[in-house]
């Protein structure tokens, strides 16, 4: 199907192609929203499934009154710190494990053991250590994002083309500067892949942590809206965080494409 439609799009003049593709991409969402509007209040009670029109008027209210922004900023701050830390430590750990046997031997067991655990299951423990609030949310985001970044950095640093390392050696690069002169830059594309995987994971972890252990943030707004039975407000917050996550992923892809002009 996709193939057939993209062929038809290619037949259009160039400037129209992008617009046509965008419209096509959003059509499924439009269909669902329309169905949702029709079903709400007819097949399903409006109190359980508020119609998109009700949700959007609350959404506008949340934005116009500015109520959502203080929570959104806190949520984004938690993501920025948690994801930032996971990139920093994940890259160091991944490259370190790939290039040094003692480092690999030491950390391997932890990564293998923690890999299958959903990091949100650690929220109660994080509350015990760090209490309810920002630190707990940051820790959960950090832990959830760490593995994809470590794994991508590790695999790439293991696979650095031997002749690149030799080429640098012959020109006088010593063992230590090899890491940042050759191994790190050679690993950047895969690090970007890891971060691309981590960005949506960060939002999942954040909202999960905020639902349980926070008095602020979008997750908290979703929870409390539900608790007081204001479902349009709950949906509006879900829509907001989904839209923000979507923009974050697209924004990161844009940054990545600019950084990786050489690939």
């Amino acid at each position: 199907m996709r193939h057939a439609t993209s062929q038809r799009i290619e037949a259009l003049p160039a400037p129209v192609q992008g617009i046509a593709q965008t419209i096509l991409d959003w059509i499924p969402l439009g269909i669902v929203v329309v169905l949702w509007e029709l079903v709400s209040g007819t097949v399903v009670a409006e109190s359980i499934l508020p119609p998109p029109t009700a949700v959007s008027s609350l959404l506008v209210e949340l934005v116009v009154t500015g109520e959502v922004f203080s929570h959104l900023f806190i949520s984004l701050f938690r993501i920025a710190v948690g994801l930032g830390l996971s990139i920093l430590i994940g890259v160091l750990l991944g490259i370190g494990m790939a290039r040094s046997d003692p480092v690999e031997d030491f950390f391997d067991i932890f990564l293998s053991m923690t890999y299958p655990i959903p990091k949100t299951a650690l929220v109660p423990l994080a509350i015990l250590w760090l209490g309810v609030g920002t630190e707990t949310a940051i820790l959960i985001v950090f832990l959830a994002c760490l593995l994809p970044i470590v794994l991508n950095a590790y695999n790439a640093a293991n696979d650095v083309n031997q002749s690149l390392v030799w080429a640098a050696q012959m020109m006088g690069t010593d063992e230590r500067s090899m890491l940042y002169k050759v191994v790190f830059p050679a690993t950047i594309p895969e690090i970007m892949t890891g971060v691309r995987q981590a960005v949506p994971i960060a939002f999942v972890a954040l909202v999960s942590a905020e639902l349980i252990a926070s008095n602020q943030g979008i997750g908290y707004l979703i929870l409390t809206s539900g608790q007081i039975g204001n479902y349009p407000r709950m949906f509006a917050n879900i829509v907001i965080i989904s839209a923000v996550a979507f923009v974050a992923v697209r924004g990161f892809e844009e940054v990545r494409n600019r950084v990786l002009v050489w690939t």
Binding site: L164, W166, A167, M170, A186, T263
Partner: peptide, 11 residues
Amino acid sequence: VVFQDYALFPW
């Protein structure tokens, strides 16, 4: 050394 696979730094 001049390498068979060029070994240029792609970045």
